[in-house]
């Protein structure tokens, strides 16, 4: 992997994350370095507590970096304030969570419409309905998350993540809460949309089958990047 690739879409340089607890400082990530080119798919592997979710959170600008820097499409995250990072996310980054993170008081359609409404996109309803149709959820569009199965909720979350046609999609164990068959369908869907929209894909997973479908793999252990490999 070329750490100095000037065409890299993502550049992670000497990134560390430390939190303060009652027992003292706790290092979650230490000196992480890697780059990802645009349109590539990368799997982040590692045991529970190895720092996968923390790394994904930092990549999406959802948390502050303790030291080092992350560049997304040439834009330094540490140079941006919270609103700047939000703007970057709004137009460039989609997120899919293990536990879906759908708003319970909104229908499936309204959940998908939400990012469009937040950025003032017109025809939000039509765009969201189209995306729901593409993930096979048209008939369930007026249902609330509590009335949907895990697979349906994740499809809805994926539709939401793709509404803004993000250049980077970050997925945190997207199949972790699903059975193998449903998980497989979700992965197919993710890669289908990834191909259609030319999105860069970063997926944290325990699932080796999913990791195998990615072009690159990063292995985290106790907050450190111990191995990078190309599939």
């Amino acid at each position: 992997m070329n750490n100095d690739d000037s065409s890299a879409f993502i550049e992670v340089r000497c990134v560390g994350k430390t939190v303060t607890t009652r027992q003292g400082h706790l290092c979650l990530l230490d000196n992480i370095n890697f780059t990802v080119e645009a349109g590539r798919s990368v799997a982040v592997l590692g045991a529970s507590g190895s720092g996968k979710t923390t790394l994904l959170g930092l990549l999406a600008g959802l948390d502050d970096i303790s030291h080092g820097d992350i560049m997304i499409n040439g834009q330094s995250l540490s140079q941006l304030d919270e609103d700047g990072r939000a703007l970057l996310r709004a137009h460039n980054i989609g997120f899919v969570f293990q536990n879906f993170q759908l708003l319970q008081h909104l229908t499936a359609l309204e959940n998908v419409m939400l990012p469009l409404e937040l950025t003032g996109v017109k025809a939000a309803r039509e765009t969201a309905a189209d995306l729901l149709a593409r993930v096979g959820m048209t008939e369930r569009s007026q249902h609330y998350p509590g009335q949907l199965s895990g697979g349906e909720q994740q499809r809805c979350a994926i539709a939401r993540a793709f509404t803004m046609r993000p250049r980077l999609l970050i997925a945190d164990e997207p199949t972790g809460n699903l059975d193998a068959e449903t998980g497989m369908r979700i992965i197919d869907l993710l890669f289908k949309l990834n191909t259609e929209q030319g999105t860069t894909l970063i997926i944290a997973t325990h699932d080796t089958a999913l990791a195998d479908r990615c072009e690159r793999r990063l292995m985290l252990q106790a907050g450190q990047l111990v191995e990078t490999s190309v599939a």
Binding site: A60, A86, R89, Q101, L103
Partner: peptide, 14 residues
């Protein structure tokens, strides 16, 4: 919780 989800989806603080 809603605020966190919205910010994840790109909503500015303002």
């Amino acid at each position: 919780y809603e605020s966190a989800v919205c910010r994840t989806l790109g909503a500015r603080k303002s």
